[in-house]
Lab assay of single mutants.
Amino acid sequence: DRMTSQEAACFPDIISGPQQTQKVFLFIRNRTLQLWLDNPKIQLTFEATLQQLEAPYNSDTVLVHRVHSYLERHGLINF
């Protein structure tokens, strides 16, 4: 699994950072998509996403918020 070119453009700090940071991003992105796909008729809020993310992935709330906002803005969740 890899970041898309659009994700890389929107998250230059992640793509240029350590490999582990990219893996954390990918986990948060994929898990958020999975959470929404589990029940697409219900809006997936940032707060609900954060509550359902497993530790330690829920510890970087800023990154979780950025990923959630990106997915929502680009019509990948909550459409």
Rank of each mutant, 00 (worst) to 15 (best):
A48L: 09
T32D: 03
V64F: 02
D38K: 15
I42L: 12
R66E: 05
N30H: 07
Q51H: 12
S69V: 07
V62D: 11
V24M: 15
S16N: 08
P18E: 12
N30Y: 04
H74I: 11
A8C: 13
Q43Y: 15
L44Y: 02
L76T: 04
E47H: 10
N39W: 03
T49K: 01
Q43A: 12
Q19D: 11
P56E: 05
S59L: 11
R2G: 06
P18L: 08
T32S: 08
M3R: 02
N30S: 07
A8E: 15
Q43L: 12
E7T: 01
D38M: 12
L63E: 04
I15C: 14
D38A: 15
E72K: 04
L71Y: 00
E72V: 13
E47P: 12
A8P: 03
A9W: 09
Q19L: 14
L53H: 02
R73K: 15
D13L: 03
Q43M: 08
S69L: 07
E7L: 00
H68I: 03
T4H: 04
G75R: 11
K41I: 12
P56H: 03
I14V: 12
D13F: 01
Y57I: 05
A9L: 13
L76R: 10
L76Q: 07
H68V: 05
P40D: 12
T45F: 00
T4C: 12
G75L: 05
R73W: 11
P12L: 06
R29I: 01
F46H: 05
Q6W: 07
E54N: 05
I42V: 15
C10F: 12
L26Q: 09
F25E: 01
T21M: 12
A8D: 05
T21E: 10
R29M: 06
G75M: 07
H74Y: 06
P56D: 05
I28L: 11
Y57N: 05
L71V: 01
H74C: 12
I77H: 04
H65A: 11
D38Q: 12
D1Y: 09
L26M: 13
A8L: 11
L33F: 08
A48M: 10
R2Q: 11
A8R: 13
Q52S: 13
L44E: 00
M3C: 05
L53F: 07
L50Q: 06
L63W: 03
S5R: 14
E54I: 10
I42Q: 11
Q43N: 08
V64C: 10
N58K: 08
C10S: 12
R29T: 01
F46R: 08
T45M: 03
L71P: 02
V64G: 02
N78R: 01
G17A: 12
I77W: 01
A48N: 07
F11K: 00
E7G: 00
T4W: 04
L33W: 05
H65K: 15
W36R: 02
S59G: 11
V64T: 05
T4I: 03
I42T: 14
R2K: 14
Y70N: 02
P40H: 08
R66L: 03
L53T: 06
R73F: 06
T45P: 03
E72A: 12
L37G: 14
F25K: 02
E47S: 13
N78V: 00
Q52H: 11
Q34I: 05
E54G: 14
Q6D: 13
Y70C: 05
P40Y: 04
F11P: 01
L76P: 00
T45I: 02
L76V: 11
V24W: 12
N78Y: 01
F11H: 01
S5N: 08
V64R: 00
F25M: 05
D1E: 08
L50G: 02
V67T: 04
L50A: 06
L35Q: 05
D60P: 05
Q19F: 08
S59Y: 10
R66C: 03
Q34A: 10
Q34F: 03
T4S: 14
L33C: 12
T32W: 02
Y70T: 02
L50I: 09
L35N: 03
I14K: 00
V62I: 13
F25T: 02
H68F: 12
A8F: 06
M3L: 12
W36N: 04
F11W: 01
P18Y: 06
T4V: 03
T4L: 04
T32P: 00
L53P: 00
C10L: 09
Q51Y: 10
P12M: 04
G75S: 10
D38E: 14
I77R: 00
Q51S: 13
V62A: 14
G75Y: 03
D38I: 09
T32Q: 02
L76H: 04
Q22R: 11
H65R: 12
S5L: 13
A48P: 01
C10H: 09
Y57S: 04
S16I: 10
F27C: 12
T61G: 10
T61W: 09
H74L: 10
I15G: 10
R2S: 12
Y70M: 07
T32K: 00
L63Y: 03
G17N: 04
E72D: 12
K41E: 14
T4Y: 06
T4M: 05
N30K: 07
F27N: 10
T49N: 07
F79S: 15
L53Y: 00
T4Q: 05
N39Y: 06
V67Q: 00
S69A: 12
T45D: 06
W36S: 07
L33D: 02
I15L: 10
R29G: 02
A48Y: 09
R73P: 00
T61M: 11
A48C: 09
R29W: 04
R66Q: 07
R29K: 10
T49M: 08
S5D: 14
A9G: 10
Q52Y: 10
L76N: 06
A9I: 08
S16L: 11
Q34N: 05
N58Y: 05
F11E: 01
C10W: 10
D38C: 11
L37T: 14
W36T: 04
I28C: 05
F79P: 12
T32H: 02
G75F: 05
L26F: 13
E47R: 08
H65W: 10
E72N: 07
D13A: 03
R66P: 00
A9H: 06
P12Y: 05
M3G: 03
T4P: 03
L71M: 08
P18K: 11
N30W: 03
Q34W: 06
I15E: 11
R31T: 08
A55H: 12
Q20E: 14
Q52F: 08
G75T: 04
P40K: 08
Y57R: 02
Y70A: 03
Q52M: 13
Q43T: 13
Q52R: 14
Q34S: 10
E7I: 04
T49C: 13
I14S: 01
H65F: 12
N78G: 01
R31A: 11
F11A: 02
N39S: 09
S59E: 10
K41N: 12
